[in-house]
Amino acid sequence: MSTAIMTSEAERTQLRASTPSFFGIVRGELLKMSRRWSTWIPLVLVAMFLCAGTLVRLLSSNLKEYITAHPLDFMYREMENGLAFIQIFTGLYFLVLVAYVIGLEYQMGTIRVLIARGVGKLTLLAAKVTSVLIMAALVIIASLLLTSVMICIVLQAKAGNLDALKALNAQFWSDSGLYLLTVLISTVVTILLGTMFSVLGRSLTIGLSAGLAWFPVDNIGAQFLRLGYLITQNDIWKNVTAYFLGPNLNVMASQVMPARLQVEAVGIPPLVKVDGPHTLWVALVYGLIFLVVSIALTVTRDIKE
């Protein structure tokens, strides 16, 4: 009897010891991402769009004269365009990525295996989101390097040298860092959006379709509200758009960056004037809502699939 009790205790101890750690789960998620075609094929498309968005400058006939006369202005314009493209195309990619990382786990039922191993539901969700954030950081770094190389190719092809890089000063790098910060904020909110829909729908299909549909609906909805204003002449139709996520992310960089740069919105703006702090608060509130809903659904619902 004593031997049986000791054996049972040893088995339970071994089972607890075999429970995956948080960092082990993150490492496993990164490994799974690296082995999926769904990770690499969309990423190649993102790289192609980024390259095309920069290399299209080669079609400009008077670009050489502009680079020679205004090298710093040229670099500012390329920085703004490059980061805008990174925000748009990587944002779409991250919605696809998070749908596969979270939604596919539910859809295939493999999440039950991890839960059965003793992994907490919140721990698993946190590990998955952490792995996506790590991947997002790597993708953005790679995108920045790729865009920088493309800009150098444009300079070499049009001006015949890279002398425009010598015009870069401390203010340029400070402004670039500020713009990059808005891209990172948009990235985090986008990932939390995809997480919420993947947890809510518990499937790849719902997570992917709802996540990708959010921003088009958000932006097109603002245009319908414009129509409502034109018909009724009531400002409430325009004022509502000040709290739409997509339009606020579109104008965040243009409102946060110094006015002297005259940065343009990357998409449809709100129908009323908003400032930088407003766009940041809207992004924060939406991000918190997405996070709280994801946590609440994960905690309250059982894994039955």
Results as ranks from 00 to 15, higher is better:
Thr3Asn: 04
Ala4Trp: 07
Glu9Thr: 09
Glu11Ala: 14
Glu11Lys: 13
Thr13Glu: 15
Arg16Thr: 13
Ser21Thr: 11
Gly24Arg: 08
Gly24Ile: 10
Ile25Glu: 10
Arg27Val: 00
Met33Ser: 09
Ser38Met: 15
Pro42Glu: 03
Leu45Met: 13
Ala47Glu: 02
Met48Ile: 12
Ser61Gly: 09
Ser61Tyr: 12
Glu65Cys: 00
Tyr66Trp: 11
His70Tyr: 05
Asp73Ala: 15
Phe74Thr: 04
Met75Trp: 05
Arg77Gln: 15
Glu78Ile: 03
Met79Phe: 07
Gly82Asp: 14
Phe85Glu: 15
Phe85Ile: 14
Phe89Asn: 11
Phe89Glu: 12
Thr90Val: 09
Phe94Arg: 12
Leu95Glu: 07
Ala99Glu: 02
Tyr106Gly: 06
Gln107Trp: 01
Ile111Met: 14
Ile115Cys: 03
Gly120Pro: 04
Lys121Leu: 04
Lys121Met: 03
Thr123Asp: 12
Lys128Pro: 01
Val129Gln: 02
Ser131Phe: 13
Ala137Lys: 04
Val139His: 05
Val139Ala: 11
Ile141Glu: 12
Leu144Asp: 05
Leu144Ala: 01
Thr147His: 13
Val149Lys: 09
Cys152Tyr: 06
Ile153Ala: 14
Val154Gln: 08
Ala164Ile: 06
Leu165Ile: 12
Lys166Pro: 00
Asn169Ser: 05
Trp173Lys: 06
Ser174Arg: 15
Thr182Val: 06
Thr182Asn: 10
Val189Pro: 06
Ile191Arg: 11
Met196Arg: 02
Val199Thr: 01
Gly201Trp: 03
Arg202Ala: 03
Ser203Cys: 10
Gly207Ala: 02
Pro216Asp: 14
Asp218Glu: 12
Gly221Lys: 12
Arg226Thr: 13
Gly228Trp: 07
Tyr229Ala: 02
Leu230Phe: 08
Gln233Pro: 01
Asp235Gln: 15
Ile236Phe: 07
Phe244Val: 07
Gly246Phe: 02
Leu249Ile: 03
Gln255Ala: 01
Met257Ala: 07
Ala259Ser: 09
Ala259Ile: 02
Glu264Arg: 10
Val274Met: 04
Tyr286Cys: 10
Leu288Ile: 06
Val292Phe: 11
Ser294Thr: 11
Ala296Asp: 00
Ala296Tyr: 02
